[in-house]
Design a binder for these strands. Structure first.
Lengths: 106, 106
DNA sequence: GGTGTATACATAGTATAACGAGGTATGAGG
DNA sequence: CCTCATACCTCGTTATACTATGTATACACC
């Protein structure tokens, strides 16, 4: 899938991915790939900078973990991040509704 | 609405706007604004270059018209443009479905 | 012990496209 | 005349997803 479409929606995806429980970048990539049946096969160069942006913005917080001898940076949703997630969810709903109105075959 | 979200979706919007009958840029802007209840209030600097891109790509064709003493550049959907519209509609469906799966509150 | 694969992180540079700001011109209404 | 709506255009900015590349560990296989 052409990735230009993702612009402006990636943050919502990542915040939503971390809603339930903390996770690390590589794991998020695979989870998204699996959940969407391969529709979103995100590059590492897409995810890692995006997670960093969200942490700088205060929406995520990270901590190092070691599992099976490998280091992971595990991200969790902060309280401001939860608010941001709600805000973006609503925004997505509005966007999708508008798109549907414009694009639906009458 | 933040416009970053539009990236990659504007072409679909414009092709769909021209599906029924030809229209001109300024009119398309107002039609989209009205249909979406103000959610998409697109700037002229967004629309005009986009229409030109689509014409260069062969998906639209344009002709000058004069209505009430004012010149309009009227765009119509070409046959390749209709195929492109169908393709992008399907793509949007896939995108929206994937987003819904990732973002829906469980 | 070497090779390949999956896991896991990171960054530097590029490309693209929507947008902001500015410019031009006509017609109608007061 | 002045303002407003109509109608077009273009240049420069900016945000951000992506490509390419590099690093390192664990594990299986021969």
């Amino acid at each position: 899938m052409r990735r230009e479409e993702l612009k402006g929606h990636l943050d919502l995806i990542l915040l939503a991915a971390l809603e339930g429980e903390p996770a690390h970048g590589y794991g998020i990539i695979r989870a998204i790939d699996e959940l969407t049946g391969g529709t979103f096969d995100l590059a590492e160069g897409t995810i890692y900078p995006a997670l960093q942006r969200l942490e700088v913005a205060g929406h995520l917080a990270s901590a190092w973990e070691t599992v099976g001898g490998r280091r992971r940076r595990v991200y969790r949703l902060t309280t401001p991040g939860q608010r941001e997630l709600a805000r973006r969810r609503q925004q997505w709903g509005q966007f999708a509704l508008a798109m549907t109105r414009l694009v639906e075959t009458p």
